[in-house]
């Protein structure tokens, strides 16, 4: 009898793990992935969802099973087992979560690193350039000040973003273009300098899995590389006043050719000087 019960538990555990992994791999809850970071993010999401599904189904299953199996039958006035604890069991369910959490932490560190989040920040411009040459993805956020980054030639396309109640304004230093919508080519790293004129706003593009607060008094650099042409919303995610919900814009991702077209049509400085 003890053996069969142990085998049953192990089998149930295996079924649970397989089910969780299956759910995690097949669930579709996220919008289209349109930046180099997005597929990396989605990988993390699937892993977390699998672990979460296993835990949730496991504990919910145990609770529901207990409520049905061990419910008091009418007329039964007896007590349950006088079981006050079980050291090996308690060590087991301290150790397993600790290992899972450690794995999740290390794994998400790796994901963060792959997104470029661990690049040192204090030499803004230098790393900015390295990033491009090493083709690292920078989905993290640099709080390094833009002043330090200096002149960058042939580097990521610089865009200056100004947030204010209740709009985003995009300025392209090359060509001196000012636009209410962000235009970017695919495959080209974009380096944005974000600044706010009044309160805290946040720059969020769900399809890029990218968000950064735009903080007054603290210019921030944010880089990304778009991969799929299309038109995606830019959403302010930080409560900024009565019209917060209406503070939206769009990012238009074009093929490099189409982008070049747009750029030439809008550039104020003659194209030859670029």
């Amino acid at each position: 009898m003890p053996l069969s019960s142990a085998i049953r538990s192990v089998l149930l555990g295996i079924v649970l793990v397989v089910a969780g992994l299956w759910i995690g791999q097949n669930i579709k809850l996220l919008p289209v992935d349109a930046s180099t970071n997005a597929p990396v993010y989605d990988e993390l999401f699937r892993v977390l969802f699998s672990i979460g599904a296993i835990l949730f189904l496991g504990i919910t299953g145990l609770v529901v099973f207990s409520l049905i199996k061990f419910r008091r039958k009418p007329g039964d006035t007896s007590d349950g087992i006088a079981l006050e604890g079980n050291l090996s069991l308690e060590i087991l369910w301290t150790a397993i979560p600790a290992i899972v959490v450690l794995f999740v932490g290390i794994y998400s560190y790796d994901i963060y690193d792959r997104m470029g989040g661990m690049l040192p920040l204090d030499h803004g411009g230098h790393n900015h350039q390295n990033m491009a040459s090493e083709e690292r993805i920078w989905g993290g956020i640099s709080s390094g000040s833009i002043e330090k980054s200096g002149m960058v030639v042939n580097a990521p396309l610089p865009v200056e973003v100004t947030a204010m109640q209740f709009a985003f304004i995009f300025h392209y230093p090359k060509g001196d273009i000012t636009s209410g919508e962000l235009h970017v080519p695919t495959g080209q790293p974009i380096s944005m300098r974000l600044e706010s004129r009044d309160v805290i706003h946040a720059f969020w593009v769900p399809e890029f899995r990218l968000k950064q607060d735009v903080i007054p008094g603290q210019p921030t650099i944010l880089s990304f590389t778009a991969t799929k042409p299309g038109r995606y919303p830019i959403i302010c995610a930080e409560l900024c006043g009565p019209y917060h919900g209406g503070m939206r814009s769009a990012v238009i991702v074009d093929s490099p050719k189409a982008y070049e077209e747009w750029f030439k049509n809008n550039a104020k400085t003659p194209v030859s000087e670029l």
């Binding site: 993010y41 932490g105 998400s108 994901i111 989905g139 993290g140 946040a202 969020w204 990218l210 930080e238």
Partner: peptide
């Protein structure tokens, strides 16, 4: 709690 995860869904 995972930074890369949070960056997408923070404030949503």
């Amino acid at each position: 709690a995972q930074v890369p995860f949070d960056i997408h869904v923070h404030d949503t």
